[in-house]
Amino acid sequence: MFFPVCIDIENKKCLVVGGGKIAYKKIKTLSRYNPDITVIAEEIKEEKIKEIENINIIEKRFSGENLKEYMLVVAATDNKELNEKIAEFCINNNILVNNITSKENMNARFGAILENEDYQILVSSHGKNCKNSKNLRDKIKNIIK
C-alpha cells in the first residue's frame, strides 16, 4: 500500500531509463520541479525529449551503473525484464523507483497532478487506471477554478 507524500526533488539527481513516449511524459512531469535529470536510452525514440531544457541525455545501452547516486529512478524502457531489474535494485537499496511496466514492482507512483497558487493536489488510482485519475483531477479542477 502506498502512502501519499509530496517530496522536494529540486536539484536532486533523478534518472529516467528509456527514450520513448512514456519516458517523455515522466521527464516532462519531473522537469516542472527542477531536478537534475539524466536520461539514459539506447535510442531517443521520442524526439521531444531532446527539446527539454536542462537534462543530461546519454544515448547508450543501460548497464546499471551508478544507480545509488540517484534519489529517484524511472524505469521507462520497453523491456519489462530490464525495468524489473532496475526496480528490484532500487527497492533493495532504498531508492525511489517508478516502474512503468508494473503496477506492483515499484515504491513510487506518479499520479494526476493539479496545481494552482493555492493548492497542489495529486489524484491516484492505486496504479490501476490513470485515465480515471486524470478524469477526477479534471473534475476537481472545475470545482476549484
Rank of each mutant, 00 (worst) to 15 (best):
S102T: 09
M1R: 07
K128I: 07
I55A: 08
E53T: 07
I57L: 06
G111H: 09
N79P: 03
R137I: 04
F3N: 10
K12W: 02
K80P: 12
K103M: 11
E51Y: 01
L82Q: 04
I40Y: 02
N132H: 01
E46K: 03
S31K: 10
E84L: 09
E59W: 01
L122M: 15
N107A: 03
N11P: 00
F2N: 12
V97Y: 05
P35A: 14
E115G: 04
I140T: 04
K141F: 01
M71C: 08
D118C: 00
K50G: 02
N129K: 11
I7K: 10
N132E: 15
V17M: 07
K85F: 15
I9M: 04
I57Q: 03
I44R: 01
I22V: 15
E88D: 14
S124T: 15
N54V: 12
I49R: 04
I7S: 10
E81A: 09
L114V: 10
D118W: 00
E10Y: 04
N56L: 06
I86H: 03
N34M: 07
K85E: 15
D138M: 07
E115Y: 00
A87M: 08
V74R: 02
N129A: 06
K131G: 11
I40H: 02
N79G: 06
S133D: 09
Y24N: 11
A23S: 13
T101H: 07
I144K: 07
I91W: 09
Y24W: 06
V16N: 02
F62I: 01
V17D: 00
E117Y: 00
K21L: 13
A76N: 01
L114W: 01
L122E: 11
D118H: 04
I140M: 06
D8R: 12
N135D: 13
I91D: 03
E69W: 09
I86Y: 03
K60V: 14
K45D: 03
V123K: 11
A87I: 07
A41I: 10
D78I: 03
E53H: 08
K139I: 04
L136E: 13
I58M: 03
E43C: 06
P35T: 12
I40K: 02
E69K: 15
A23H: 04
A87N: 03
I113G: 09
M106G: 09
K80E: 15
G127R: 07
